[in-house]
């Protein structure tokens, strides 16, 4: 009755709400945990102690070099057609403006195609992207590529409608990328409301002028750590089921949703197994990644360090898409492995979370999945996720302890059973 015991302990028993309470203590104490920040360093130290005090095994830190970018002071004011102070968030890796800022006329476009069509109008202007939200994967391209595409046509800065499915005047930050050979221009996200307003103004023929100041700076890379803890396997200790989330966040809100929840249900999975006195046949390894938000930096270096043992990884798991009410598991692997995962998920019938979806993925586990290791990610109710993602609204207030309990139970049952089965998951 292992699955039932895990579910009972996590959802109804003594340790219900534990992952929520543990997370609240960390994020209320430390706050957001930007790559390269003192906050992230402090969070890693606290987690190292927490995992040791929890009685987990082989608790250690694995060194990683990570980027260090800081946004500094930033502001944007519309000067024409009326004075309007705008909420902005500079995008990760953006350069700052020159001292005194940039004052320029705006060109509003709804897409990269429109930018190309109107390239002759773009020189010397601030490009405002008012792209519609058509899902995260597609829309995020404007955040990541917006500055490069604007710079290619001679713009001096870019302001991008936040990648958010809902807005109450909230800017949402995130990483952006420059391209070799293309001038670097300052870039920030603005609110959905302001982007849409400027689009309306432009369509009426209004001239729009914005003054933008950004103090963003990139500093030399710095040392950080992936945080690792284990329950060592009883029969095949060299074989691994990896359970993970990332400990870093952006520098706004509390990083509770992204990805405090994922990191803490992953810790909870090991805690539940340990508290029930269980020891799977192969090792359950918890990894709390560093610098995921900068492009999976910690995970990339972990992969380089450990890929020689790739044949020993039965399953890699990451929770980085919220810990709201789970609907199932996303899974990538061979047909045989998928059939096995369906049987494993049947153990979660008491929670009515039995579905196995396609496309197990995560920035931090994709290295392994692409190399043929079966991968799983938590599938949950994403309705509210992009309301808060990368914004000041990413706080404990949006987290739900009962939903985290269910997520932790799902995570623990899957991790334990796959780690304890007689054989590793079959590969293609």
């Amino acid at each position: 009755d292992v699955a039932k015991a895990i579910i009972n302990l996590a959802v109804y028993g003594k340790y219900q709400n534990r992952s929520y309470e543990r997370l609240g203590l960390l994020v209320d104490t430390v706050g957001p945990r930007l790559s390269g920040s003192k906050n992230l360093e402090k969070a890693i130290q606290i987690m190292y102690q927490n995992l040791q005090q929890d009685g987990l095994e082989n608790v250690h830190l694995e060194q990683v070099r990570i980027p260090h970018w800081e946004r500094g002071e930033e502001s944007a004011v519309m000067l024409e057609p009326r004075i309007h102070k705008m909420a902005i968030l500079g995008l990760g890796s953006s350069i700052g403006t020159p001292p005194g800022g940039i004052t320029a006329e705006v060109l509003v476009v709804a897409s990269f195609d429109e930018l190309q069509r109107r390239a002759s109008e773009a020189r010397g202007k601030i490009i405002v992207y008012n792209q519609p939200y058509t899902g995260y994967e597609k829309t995020v391209q404007y955040r990541v590529q917006g500055a490069v595409e604007a710079a290619k046509v001679g713009a001096v800065a870019s302001l991008i409608q936040s990648v958010a499915s809902f807005s109450i005047y909230s800017p949402h930050t995130g990483i952006q990328k420059y391209q070799d050979g293309v001038p670097k221009i300052p870039t920030a996200c603005i609110t959905v409301e302001d982007a849409e307003m400027m689009s309306r103004m432009a369509s009426r023929g209004n001239k729009i002028v914005i003054h933008l100041e950004m103090g963003a700076k990139t500093y030399p890379d710095t040392d950080s750590f992936n945080t690792v803890a284990e329950i060592t396997g009883s029969m095949y200790p060299e074989e691994v089921v990896l359970v993970s989330g990332h400990l870093d966040s952006w520098d706004v809100g509390q990083g509770a949703l992204d990805d405090g929840g994922g990191a803490f249900i992953s810790w909870e999975a090991l805690s539940l197994v340990k508290d029930l006195g269980l020891r799977p046949k192969r090792t359950l390894r918890l990894v709390l990644w560093t610098a995921e938000e900068q492009g999976g930096i910690g995970a990339s270096q972990y992969y380089e360090l450990h890929k020689a043992n790739i044949s020993k990884y039965s399953l890699v798991m990451e929770a980085d898409s919220g810990t709201f009410l789970p609907t199932g598991l996303q899974f990538t692997g061979s047909d045989k492995a998928r059939a096995i995962m369906k049987e494993v998920m049947n153990l979660l019938q008491p929670l009515n979370v039995t579905k196995v979806f396609s496309n197990g993925e995560g920035t931090d586990i994709n290295f392994w999945i692409q190399a043929g290791v079966p991968g799983a990610s938590l599938r949950d109710d994403l309705y509210k996720y992009f309301f808060f993602h990368h914004s000041h609204g990413d706080t404990m207030t949006v987290m739900d302890p009962k939903q985290m309990n269910v997520a932790a139970a799902v995570w623990a049952v899957v991790a334990y059973v796959v780690a304890d089965m007689d054989e590793m998951l079959p590969r293609s």
């Binding site: 009755d1 049987e343 054989e423």
Partner: peptide, 24 residues
């Protein structure tokens, strides 16, 4: 050993299914 040398399990899916059901 957890995985046979050729990487192919000799067990039937029915056996694996029964094993998993034991965790219920």
């Amino acid at each position: 050993k957890a995985v046979f040398k050729n990487g192919v399990s000799q067990r039937t899916f029915r056996e694996i299914k029964e094993e998993i059901a034991n965790y219920e």
